[in-house]
Amino acid sequence: MSKWQTEVRLLARFLSSGVVNTFLGFAIIFALMAVGVQPLWANFAGYATGFFLGFVLSRNFVFRSNGRFVTQSLRYLMSFAMCFVLNLLVLQAGLQHMAAIPAQILASAAYTASMFLLARLWVYQNVS
């Protein structure tokens, strides 16, 4: 398999795991709100679950890594934080120039692209 094909395969698995993670996160948020949990706490629970599931899926399904767990988990946490800040910055900038929905889509795309690059080049750097 060529290097290009490998990268496309990894990106496809990354995106598909993101879809699963997003649906689960929203399911948790909406279920908690339905039983009376305040939206802020429901959101926190959904994103916390998404963070952990994202790490597990990235490590085991996307990159199929058997590298050092502690190192990879710390790098994943730092990557998540950096990408989330980028997401907020892009959202804030986008809201100055466009409606909220396109701004959210642009911010989400920035998060996804940067998270894939950091995961591929730093968190799971030795995976081929």
Results as ranks from 00 to 15, higher is better:
M1S: 07
S2K: 01
S2H: 01
K3V: 11
W4Q: 14
Q5G: 04
E7T: 15
E7D: 15
V8P: 12
V8D: 12
R9S: 08
R9G: 10
L11S: 08
L11P: 01
A12V: 04
R13I: 10
R13D: 11
F14E: 00
F14I: 08
L15W: 04
V19M: 04
V20M: 09
V20F: 07
N21T: 05
T22G: 04
G25T: 11
F26Q: 13
F26W: 14
I29T: 10
I29D: 06
I29V: 15
A31L: 06
L32Y: 11
M33R: 03
A34N: 03
V37T: 13
V37P: 10
P39C: 01
P39L: 00
L40W: 02
W41A: 06
A42F: 07
A42T: 08
N43T: 15
N43K: 14
G46Q: 12
G46W: 10
G46H: 11
Y47C: 14
Y47A: 15
A48C: 05
A48S: 05
A48H: 03
T49M: 09
G50A: 04
G50H: 01
F51W: 02
F51D: 09
F52Q: 00
F52Y: 03
F52R: 00
F52H: 02
L53R: 03
G54I: 02
F55H: 00
F55Y: 00
V56L: 14
V56A: 09
R59T: 05
N60T: 12
F61H: 15
F61M: 13
V62P: 11
F63G: 06
R64V: 09
S65D: 08
N66Y: 14
G67I: 12
G67Q: 11
R68C: 08
F69W: 15
V70E: 09
T71Y: 13
Q72L: 09
Y76V: 00
L77R: 00
A81T: 04
A81N: 04
M82K: 03
M82D: 02
C83V: 06
L86Y: 02
L86N: 05
N87C: 12
L88S: 09
L88G: 08
L89H: 09
V90S: 11
L91N: 15
Q92Y: 15
Q92W: 12
A93K: 12
G94Y: 06
L95D: 13
H97Q: 08
A99I: 10
A103M: 11
I105R: 04
I105D: 07
L106D: 12
A107Y: 09
S108P: 13
A109R: 04
A109W: 07
A110W: 01
A110K: 04
T112I: 07
S114P: 00
S114R: 00
L118F: 00
L118G: 02
A119E: 11
R120C: 03
V123L: 06
V123A: 05
Y124V: 05
Y124Q: 03
V127T: 04
